[in-house]
Amino acid sequence: MDDLVVLRVGTKILIPFILLFALYVQFHGDYGPGGGFQAGVIFAAAYVLYALVFGIGNALRVMPAKVVYACGAVGVMIFVGTGFVTMGLGGVFLDYNVLAHEPSHGQHYGIIAVELGVLVTVFGVMVAIFYAFAGRRRLDP
């Protein structure tokens, strides 16, 4: 795709904004519409777009398959880990109230942390699915 200059330049311009939008959705997700799932998908979309335009080889160099799988795993652990932290602080599982000096702040922190876990997992899984299908060699006819 070396000859598709417009596409390459367009993509390069778009990707940062998509990533930024993903982060916006993520951090808006505590009390408003948004959240880790959507953010993760948008994040992955940006990455998939990059891989589509610049080739899966380049994409793999940016983020090897192992790292992507690890993302999927780490995200779950962030989610569950948050629950453990709240338990450690004396609340029940995923009781955000105990995370900060007063409950409504705690809820903010807790939701952001959990959504971050979701974001990482969703991103990891989405890209992993993409890798799994795109990285497969064609069957010999």
Partner: peptide
């Protein structure tokens, strides 16, 4: 916490096993 620990500890360890 036992009722929830029975589920979430394996849930925490499952990704760890993959990692």
């Amino acid at each position: 916490h036992l009722p929830v620990l029975i589920v979430v500890v394996p849930l925490l360890l499952a990704p760890l096993a993959a990692l």
